[in-house]
Design a protein around this nucleic acid. Structure first.
Lengths: 134, 134
DNA sequence: CTTGACTCTGGACCGTGATCCAGACTCTAG
DNA sequence: CTAGAGTCTGGATCACGGTCCAGAGTCAAG
């Protein structure tokens, strides 16, 4: 059973101390207790919980999402957790699709641009400057 | 030669009035002039410039990028414009790659999750909860 | 002339996720 | 005991791209 200071917790999870306190302010992570001095103390449960937060964020969940996931996790509600993951996947796929659309536009323009010569012949500038077609 | 109020300019470009003034504060778009009343007046050049801004943003350029692009456009520096577009493309490709990485993680977890049963059997919760392996 | 729509300015505020600060207090090694 | 590292609080600040507001002035139609 570990009994960690905020600095040790931060060090073990790779999360900044200020961020740990920020998560606390936002109701994501409470210390197990406090010393008489007011210093926060964290146990294994909080260590795991902070790792959970860090991993969920790495999977693209917002802090708001993480808050919901933590609740579902505590409720052990597997069905809702799966649905949340599916919703996040759909969200990520939409972002990818949008970026791919943009990528396609840029690629086309770059490929058509000689990179020298008159500005009027630059398809990139033309695309940004020309009249609407739609 | 059009001679537009800020409201007409906003309406023709699909940009909010407040946003037009925001762009002005940030040096992206100055009105052609002012009436005695102080009302802004815009001509064709500003209309085109605002469309340029809107399109560049649709291609993923930040306002900072747009500022640079507008300068390059005025300089008619085709080579630098092309390089800016290439840099932005690389940026977008990196974002896509990162999102694809996340998508892969989520897909794997979702596929392995039965969506019911014990929380301990849910790979999504396990992935968020388990000890590090690396 | 009146009325309603439009515009002006300066500044406050939003969401997201932190990050940093001052000034005070506490803990630990030596 | 002392020095240095760690921690506390509350609040300010950042980036980004706007959005909204009050209160005053202006414009255009009827």
């Amino acid at each position: 059973m570990s009994n960690l200071s905020i600095g040790q917790l931060a060090q073990r999870t790779g999360v900044a101390i200020d961020t740990v306190r920020y998560y606390e302010r936002n109701g994501l992570l409470q210390p197990a207790g406090r010393l008489a001095s007011g210093y926060r103390r964290y146990g294994d449960a909080e260590l795991k919980r902070l790792r959970f937060i860090r991993r969920a964020k790495a999977l693209g969940f917002s802090l708001e999402d993480v808050r919901a996931l933590l609740t579902l996790s505590e409720e052990r509600n597997v069905a809702k957790v799966k649905r949340a993951a599916q919703a996040k996947l759909a969200d990520i796929e939409a972002r990818i699709a949008e970026l791919e659309r943009v990528r396609g536009g840029l690629r086309t323009l770059i490929a058509a641009c000689p990179g020298h010569g008159r500005a009027e012949a630059c398809p990139i500038l033309n695309a940004l400057t020309d009249e609407e077609t739609h």
